[in-house]
Design a binder for these strands. Structure first.
Length: 328
DNA sequence: AAGTCACGCAACCGCTCGCGC
DNA sequence: GGCGCGAGCGGTTGCGTGACT
């Protein structure tokens, strides 16, 4: 037996509510209370389904509804609550006085979710998206596909923001190797990825995936990301001799590429780069805040600032130069 | 100025749950 | 225990609006 409709849908109005309908509904509820939603529309003189009346009241007309933009505190609470409760919008709304489940759901889908995706956070699991950290994708973005001379070092530098240092070092190694090995950059990707996987097996990258409130990755300032190679070449460090310009024609077979990963000269160079582009420009991180904590952020901040703020829960950014559209 | 596109929001739809008979 | 019903919830849709070309 089919389920009976919640109400007789014949001659019932649908679509946006008019001010007159709002007034009728508000007056009735303020006088008699909501009572039975099924019979309410008839008693209130509305040509609406009871369900529609309930939604209109709970999502829009209720006097205790807070309207306007979500504050940082509210946004932070939503993210934290969502990480615990999932898509239990009503449960989340219950923790945010004046906000409705529908409003929170809409805000999540139109703002927070997109922002998390842009930050490389899976909005469902609240964990960093491992597919975004895929070595091949990052390195293809960084190295480019045609000629190492066109390699996107800027992309690689940006990519550092979402890698752990070991990972970045390997990626940088691949890039530098590509400088001297014009033949097949994608092979290098495979080789370095293999090396990375080996390291991962040794537990060297286990901190790459952490609980949301533990995951913190330094952010890069635009200044550093936008600078070219010259800006990141540390004064106190030189490119290893075998990577110098005059050695571009060096036969790749002359160098054991895996051994290069252990080369002190290269390591020193990479560490210097690391210091130059990373540590000096790292955005100070605050400790994760609890729901009860008071935030120091003010509500009037611009949207861009909010993006940078990224909530204390997520300190991960995808650089502009890294095209993540394929993953979304 | 007109057309197109993207976005945000309100509302709807279908399903599940809980309660009373 | 089964059934009907009301209420609530989460996913989806459609419209209005502003930005962009």
């Amino acid at each position: 037996m089919g389920r009976a409709p919640c109400c007789d849908k014949n001659d019932l109005k649908k679509g946006p509510w008019t001010p007159e309908e709002d007034l009728l509904l508000t007056n009735y509820i303020q006088t008699y209370g909501p009572g039975n939603w099924r019979t309410l529309p008839k008693n209130a003189g509305l040509q609406r389904c009871g369900k529609s009346c309930r939604l209109r009241w709970t999502n829009y007309l209720r006097p205790d509804i807070k309207r306007g933009k979500f504050s940082f505190e509210e946004e932070e609470a939503i993210i934290q609550l969502h990480s615990v409760l999932g898509n239990k919008w009503s449960a989340i709304a219950a923790k945010l006085p004046g906000r409705t489940d529908n409003e929170i759901k809409n805000y999540w889908n139109t703002n927070i979710r997109k922002r998390l995706l842009r930050m490389g956070i899976d909005p469902v699991t609240h964990a960093p998206r491992l597919d975004l950290l895929d070595m091949s994708s990052i390195l293809r973005s960084a190295i480019g596909t045609v000629n190492p001379s066109f390699l996107n070092l800027q992309g690689l530098l940006g990519a550092q923001a979402l890698m752990n240092p070991e990972f970045f070092k390997l990626a940088a190694t691949a890039t530098l190797l590509s400088l001297k090995n014009h033949e097949n950059a994608s092979n290098l990707v495979s080789q370095v990825q293999q090396q990375f996987n080996n390291n991962a097996g040794n537990g060297q990258v286990q901190n790459q995936v952490a609980a949301p409130n533990q995951f913190q990755t330094p952010t890069l300032s635009n200044n550093n990301v936008n600078n070219g190679l010259s800006s990141i070449s540390p004064e106190n460090s030189s490119i290893p001799s075998y990577l110098g310009e005059n050695n571009y024609q060096l036969n790749a077979q002359q160098i054991n590429q895996v051994d290069l990963l252990l080369d002190p000269e290269l390591e020193h160079y990479l560490n210097s780069i690391n210091q130059n582009i990373g540590h000096e420009s790292v955005t100070p991180l605050s400790t994760p805040t609890s729901l009860n904590s008071s935030s120091t952020y003010v509500n009037s901040c611009a949207e861009e600032e909010r993006d940078t703020y990224c909530s204390d829960v997520f300190k991960l950014e995808i650089p502009e130069s890294l095209d993540i559209s394929d993953f979304l």
